[in-house]
């Protein structure tokens, strides 16, 4: 019995546990650690699975079609699905460009509107109005993407179609870069607004008063001091916004037109993004045409990773000011 106790004490000592309280503490920490391991391991499992499937088209001969050339895959301008299962000429080069193009355009539209709205809600609007606005924005941010997609298909597409018609341009049902950008802007606007609003609201009153006491007008104070003080948080909102724009599939595939070649820069051209390409016909295909979508998935993850890294770098460069 005594020996047994010594054995337990030795284990406890090796984990730096000296009392009963510390035993509880040890187990609580253990629970935290296990939770972390579970959630982190899912990321590893998902990435590993996608990678395993996605590499197939490049390393196997795809049931006699031959391996896909990685360089052509990344640089080509045609996504060949017309003769499905007959060819290995898939490429996502133009789709990568399309994806980044529409995401950046959406950010370009949503960012100024979102930040100005946030400024209005946080600093200019009367208290009652701003609390109503805040609720509305939160609701908008919670609307599922398919709803935005349906709105896009039902409202934006006819609008773009008619708009193109008045300009004398034939638009295929309105499916276009423009429609995609409008839908994506609408989707990321609440995210950007909500996060920017929090960032703006958290700028200290003392800084605001300091500016006003120097004879700056309210507008000067808002733009020169409050926005610059909040720019780190505003940048974070842009990062999340562009992440959502890059990763959005459902809504985009309803309005993009899913073009098979490109890149499409004209606003009335049909387009396709990495996500819409992955989604299109996923359930009705097999072989290389199925596997290649996982390769697109890898590309998408890399694109998002690189975009985030670039934006984080820029954020550090311009926004490292929230030292208190």
């Amino acid at each position: 019995m005594k020996k047994n106790k010594n054995w337990i004490q030795n284990i406890m000592r090796s984990f730096h546990i000296n009392s009963k309280k510390e035993i509880v503490d040890f187990f609580v920490r253990l629970i935290f650690m296990i939770s972390t391991i579970i959630s982190a391991s899912f990321i590893v499992i998902i990435v590993a699975f996608i990678a395993r499937e996605g590499i197939k088209p490049f390393v196997t001969d795809n049931d006699g079609l031959g391996a896909v050339n990685l360089f052509k895959f990344l640089s080509g301008r045609v996504w060949l699905t017309g003769t499905t299962f007959q060819s290995n000429l898939y490429s996502v080069g133009f789709i990568i460009i399309n994806t980044i193009y529409v995401a950046l355009l959406s950010l370009l539209i949503a960012m100024p509107i979102g930040v100005l709205t946030a400024l209005f809600i946080a600093k200019i609007a009367p208290k009652k109005l701003s609390s109503i606005m805040r609720t509305v924005i939160e609701l908008l941010a919670a609307i599922p993407s398919i709803v935005y997609g349906l709105f896009g298909a039902g409202v934006i597409l006819p609008f773009v179609y008619n708009f193109a018609k008045t300009l004398g341009i034939q638009s295929p049902g309105g499916n276009s870069v423009l429609a995609t950008v409008i839908v994506l802007s609408l989707m990321i606007l609440p995210t950007i607004t909500a996060l920017s609003e929090v960032a703006i609201r958290s700028v200290g009153k003392d800084i605001e008063h300091g500016s006003l006491a120097l004879g700056a007008t309210k507008t000067q104070t808002h733009f020169k001091v409050i926005l610059t003080s909040a720019k780190s948080g505003i940048f974070s909102s842009a990062i999340l916004g562009i992440g959502r724009a890059l990763g959005e599939a459902t809504a985009v595939s309803l309005v993009a037109g899913n073009s098979q070649n490109g890149p499409s820069f004209g606003i009335f051209q049909t387009t396709s993004t990495l996500t819409s390409t992955m989604l299109q016909g996923l359930k009705e295909t097999i072989g290389i045409d199925y596997d290649i979508r996982f390769s697109v998935g890898i590309v998408l993850m890399i694109v998002i990773l690189i975009t985030n890294m670039i934006l984080n770098y820029v954020k550090k460069k311009v926004g490292n000011v929230n030292v208190k």
Binding site: D206, I207, G210, A213, L214, G215, S229, V321
Partner: peptide, 18 residues
Amino acid sequence: ISLRTKVGMVFQKPNPFP
């Protein structure tokens, strides 16, 4: 505005702009 340019103010807590 012109009053505040003529009458400056220093606050309790230093509040430099970032």
